[in-house]
Simulated assay, not measured.
Amino acid sequence: MEQITIRESRFDDPAVQALIALTMAELSARYGGSGDDTPVAAADFAPPTGAFLVAEGPDGRLIGCAGWRAHGSDAELKRMFTIEAARGKGVARRVLAAIEDSARERGYKRVILETGDKQPEAIALYEKCGYERIEDFGYYKGQPGVLSYARVL
């Protein structure tokens, strides 16, 4: 993979919000509606109980992102996304590792996440990275096609 930089950013930064718009458009294409109605606010990703990370390509353009927020004693992964042109190059794996490091550094022992059955690429990534199925927990708990995962850090 070409040189990328992963850094913390504000969720409400306009460049981040442009990437989030792409995320939501892709989720909408897969699931319909808005793509994801889970309530998410910029404050959710404010340290020390959260963080939002972006991956920048060598030209400074954002190519991926993810955040985590406190969910009880766990860190909940949200808004994991890689732009289409950067997929298959290890960006998501690096962002996920950085999310785990960030949560661990702030004292969290486990990362949890909610995904759906229409995201096989995400499911494959999480399983390759050691995430295991857990009881559904989030906004879509009990809904058809919801898959929840966790990884002890």
Rank of each mutant, 00 (worst) to 15 (best):
R87N: 04
E132K: 14
Q3M: 14
K128C: 09
A86T: 04
K128T: 06
K118Q: 14
A55M: 04
V95F: 00
G50E: 05
Y149A: 01
D101P: 10
G64S: 09
A51Q: 06
A92Y: 00
A98L: 10
G88A: 05
P58K: 04
R110W: 06
L27H: 11
D36I: 14
L19H: 01
L125P: 01
L62M: 11
S148P: 04
R110K: 10
T23R: 10
I20S: 04
V146A: 09
F45A: 03
R30F: 11
E2W: 01
Y149S: 01
R10V: 08
E84I: 03
D101H: 15
Q17V: 00
P120I: 00
S9L: 05
G90H: 02
W68F: 10
E127L: 02
S28Q: 10
L96H: 03
L153W: 07
D136Q: 14
G50A: 13
V95A: 01
T115P: 03
S73M: 12
A103K: 05
R61I: 03
R106K: 14
L27G: 07
G50V: 11
V95Q: 00
A86E: 04
E127C: 03
A122Y: 01
G33W: 09
L96Y: 02
R104M: 12
E105Q: 15
R133M: 13
T82G: 10
F11R: 01
R104S: 13
C65P: 00
A92H: 00
R87D: 05
T82W: 03
R69M: 10
Y31P: 05
V146C: 11
R133S: 15
A85N: 10
A43G: 11
A46H: 14
D37I: 11
S34W: 08
S34K: 13
L147T: 08
G88T: 04
S73D: 14
P58H: 06
M80P: 04
I123Q: 08
I6P: 01
Y126I: 02
K78M: 05
D12G: 12
Y149F: 14
F45L: 06
P47H: 15
A41G: 09
K78G: 02
G57W: 00
W68A: 05
T49F: 12
E84M: 09
G57I: 03
P58S: 13
T49M: 12
R133P: 14
I6R: 02
T23S: 12
Y108W: 11
E127V: 06
Q17E: 04
D13C: 06
S9M: 10
G67W: 00
R69N: 07
E100N: 02
A55H: 01
